[in-house]
């Protein structure tokens, strides 16, 4: 659906900023594709390269089989109508009502009045704002504004939706409901969604695939569960440490006992692996920390366990766990 090849972008100003340094990405159709990175990582530039709000210095951007880079202005405008976009600060027209804002892209596309009216009504229903049709953006809450943003972005029936930090200005509760809406749209309309965020939870909640961006380079990318449970890049590990605190007190690290960090993904999270291990091998397990979470629809658990027993038994127990496909890390 979207393919980036060697995309580079440098901003010359007082100081030169290399926002993107050779990005290669493939975003398959129908997915929710997340790009995560800290501020300054190049996320905003990257997502704007997809619809050419930023023109890359080098590299190619293919969207649905069209090379976006060299399109003449009129054709680029046509292509942009097939790509919806929502923004962190909503960017609604303050002089227009909710209905007027949703009608806006249709007016630009030259749609008929009757089409506009029926489409606006459909979209108002989709985002649950039927009663706010005549309200002005200033009268809405943040979550409602973003819903208008989403409805507006969907008005021209695009096949791709770009989300630029769409939930970063919202509180956690509202974030959840907006993400839920995006998920619904993805499933029911089959829309490909590309979102950028600095929040792990957003990726966890709805993304199928994640790319980790740092310093203008994709550090790693793949299915969310894989990237988050077996992070390879240093920046991914740092991010995960930030969101799932597994800082182990120094005192424990120095103890004689064996300290294990176990991650369970998917079905495994439901299995009583630890109790099986205790029953099978004569080891004792002391659970220091545990949590279970969900990535999109896949359960994901993490345990910090202290094993005690004879060294051979502990070895056997570790082998057993590994045989069960538990992601395991011996900390001491």
């Amino acid at each position: 659906m979207i393919r980036l090849k060697g995309v580079t972008k440098t901003f010359d100003g007082k100081t030169t900023v290399h926002a993107l340094r050779g990005i290669d990405l493939h975003i398959p159709a129908g997915q929710i594709f997340g790009i995560i990175g800290q501020s300054g990582a190049g996320k905003s530039t990257l997502i704007r390269c997809i619809n050419m709000l930023e023109k890359p210095d080098q590299g190619q951007v293919w969207v649905d089989g069209v090379l976006m880079n060299e399109l003449p202005p009129a054709e680029l405008r046509q292509e942009r109508k097939k790509i919806g976009m929502i923004f962190q600060h909503f960017n609604l027209l303050s002089s227009r009502t909710v209905a007027g804002n949703i009608a806006f892209p249709l007016e630009i596309a030259g749609a008929k009045r009757s089409t506009i009216e029926s489409t606006v009504n459909e979209l108002l229903a989709l985002v649950g704002l039927e009663d706010k049709a005549n309200a002005y953006p200033a009268q809405l809450s943040g979550g409602q504004k973003q819903r208008v943003g989403i409805a507006r972005a969907l008005a021209t029936k695009p096949r791709i939706l770009l989300c630029d930090e769409a939930t970063s200005a919202l509180d956690p509760e509202t974030t959840k409901s907006v993400l839920q809406l995006l998920k619904t749209i993805n499933q029911e309309l089959g829309l490909t969604i590309v979102l950028i965020t600095h929040e792990m939870t957003v990726i966890q909640e709805i993304c199928d695939t994640v790319a980790v961006l740092e310093d203008g380079v994709v550090q790693e990318w793949g299915p969310v569960v894989q990237v988050f449970t077996r992070p390879k890049a240093e920046s991914t590990k740092r991010m995960i440490r930030g969101s799932i605190s597994t800082q182990i007190p120094q005192e424990l690290m120095g103890s004689e006992k064996t300290l294990l960090k176990l991650s369970f993904v998917g079905q495994l999270a439901h299995e009583p692996v630890i109790s099986q291990m205790i029953r099978k091998y004569s080891v004792d397990a002391n659970i220091l920390f545990g949590k279970i979470d969900q990535m999109k629809d896949i359960p994901f658990g993490m345990l910090l366990v202290e094993l005690s027993g004879s060294p051979e038994h502990i070895q056997d127990a570790i082998h057993f766990l590994q045989a069960q496909d538990v992601e395991l890390e011996v900390l001491s």
């Binding site: 942009r80 109508k81 923004f87 027209l93 806006f104 630009i108």
Partner: peptide, 15 residues
């Protein structure tokens, strides 16, 4: 006028 609003219009393919 907030440049974001103009950006939004550009993203919709406005001339």
């Amino acid at each position: 006028i907030d440049s974001g609003v103009v950006e939004a219009a550009l993203s919709m393919g406005a001339s």
